[in-house]
Design a protein around this nucleic acid. Structure first.
Lengths: 300, 300
DNA sequence: GTCCCGCCATGCGACAAGCGAATGTCTAGC
DNA sequence: GCTAGACATTCGCTTGTCGCATGGCGGGAC
């Protein structure tokens, strides 16, 4: 049963040209002879010239038909190519996937999923973007990303679909020598005297957001954006800082990570965001599944 | 008003892709928005994937759509090329014309028409075949000729259409010194004592055919096929021969041509033969018209 | 916050196109 | 002359396509 898409007038034309017969072409195409006769007639009406000479035994291309023939073949070939390429897209043998993630998701969650994805679908070109959640969502709605890993997007979840990946708890990074370094968890109040190393001068844009909203006023210390620098400052005893669970595995060994009590900084939700639409791309669906898997492994 | 032929699904697809809008595409194509919407849906069903993302302000190509786009453009371009070539065929800016003619038609009738044809339609490639009427008709029915100039085809006018061009009378070629050289016409009986130079040993295949059928028995002389040789023999006084009117203009000046009485050799009909079919090629039609013109000039 | 507007999807009825089955027409070959 | 094969045509039905109308959805203006 041939693909209905390929049953265009030109397919019929080519079949007839090759068979030099309406009847034979009809048989191989699964049509009746009358259908083929009229399809060719339709084609001839469209082109304004007869394409076949009707002979007592079959048909023969006219000169116009002979001129049309290579073009029809080219059209068929081109459509076949397109069909193969789109099929490749569907089966993830080719294509494009543009993902974005906030920084700490790049520590383990995203690379893990990405490695699995590239291993299974080496034909898909993957491009990456880094950024804060708000910016990534903007790129997503602008159609410049296919999927973004974001955190608690209170801002504007308009036109995007959120898929919950995991909830991560917060840790405090301390020097190994700190008195609290051996604790299983800690309250913010116990750290009121520490200098806090923040990623930004505005606490609303840092991990301290929820704590600040609850009334906690950290002693401001250095402002350090880079993760490696932050760790260095803490290790040197210049202050303490918050570390999300996703980044915990990337902490240098001379730091102690102590879990923060959930009442002080509740677990942070991490989502994969996709454009709102009836059908996510196969590539997006596959990557999302792998993200879920990776998130499951991290949560356990 | 666009050519209906070009209004395929792919044309609509391309227009929508360029306009990024169903509504705008519908306006320029002369459709309603709903028609475009469903045409795209049909295309998406055929390809099995969505081709456009529906946005609040228009649409945007999906990845599959972006893959399809260049192929659709190529298909359109190819069909446009085909359209141009077939149009060239119709307007005789290009094409092919295969003609054939019996020998004496090549003396003036056919070259005259051919010269006019090539002057008017230099883009048409013309090929020529020589032969006897019967063979030419065979080539014609075999589809290897488009037009043949033939004489009284009693044989088998099957599958060919005959267009009467002219009726030519017969002449007798005599040496200038011959007693009958000054006459305006002559009867065969007056030439009973002459040696007859024939083109073949079989009188049925020569110009003497009708005379032989009427009971005339010429004194057999040399058998000479080539026209230039025949003339030489007659000029040397070795005999007389029949000359059709079409070849009269090509007779060497030292010969005398005397018209044969119509009762002895009735005027010979010359036809243009074309394959029986509802529509002769434009090239054939044009050449036939020029043949008629040339025949008219010769008859007068 | 509410309204309005632009854009796409869809239900509906009318019309045309496309199909299969049967029949007609033409030709070649015996 | 008759038969067989091939294309054209007619008929009735199914299917598709269009325009018109309506509905849903989101963004921008007031």
């Amino acid at each position: 049963m041939p693909n209905p898409q390929s049953m265009s007038l030109y397919t019929v034309f080519l079949r007839v040209a090759r068979d030099s017969s309406f009847t034979a072409a009809a048989r191989t195409l699964g049509y009746t002879q009358s259908a083929v006769s009229r399809q060719i007639q339709t084609l001839e009406d469209e082109w304004g010239v007869p394409l076949f000479d009707r002979l007592p035994r079959g048909v023969r291309l006219t000169e116009a038909g002979r001129v049309l023939l290579p073009h029809a073949e080219a059209v068929e070939a081109r459509l076949a190519t397109a069909r193969a390429e789109i099929e490749a897209l569907r089966t993830l043998a080719a294509g494009r996937l543009r993902i974005g993630a906030f920084a700490t998701a790049d520590a383990q969650l995203l690379p893990s999923a990405l490695a699995a994805f590239r291993a299974r679908h080496p034909g898909v070109r993957v491009t990456r973007a880094e950024g804060l959640s708000a910016g990534l969502l903007q790129l997503l709605t602008a159609g410049e990303l296919d999927l973004a890993v974001v955190t608690a997007p209170e801002g504007a979840p308009d036109g995007v679909e959120l898929h919950h990946l995991l909830d991560e708890r917060m840790y405090v990074a301390l020097p190994r020598s700190h008195p609290l370094a051996g604790r299983t968890d800690v309250r913010l109040a116990e750290l009121a005297d520490e200098e806090w190393i923040a990623g930004s001068t505005r606490p609303e844009q840092t991990l301290m957001r929820t704590a600040v909203a609850d009334g906690f006023r950290p002693r401001p210390g250095f402002v350090v954006a880079e993760w490696i620098a932050k760790q260095g400052f803490v290790a040197a005893g210049l202050g303490v800082t918050l570390v999300p669970a996703l980044a915990a595995c990337a902490a240098r060994p001379d730091l102690a990570l102590v879990a923060l009590h959930p009442d002080d900084a509740p677990w942070r939700a991490v989502y994969a965001a996709t454009p709102r639409g009836p059908a996510p791309t196969p590539a997006v669906a596959a990557f999302l599944a792998l993200l879920r898997q990776a998130a499951g492994r991290l949560a356990s």
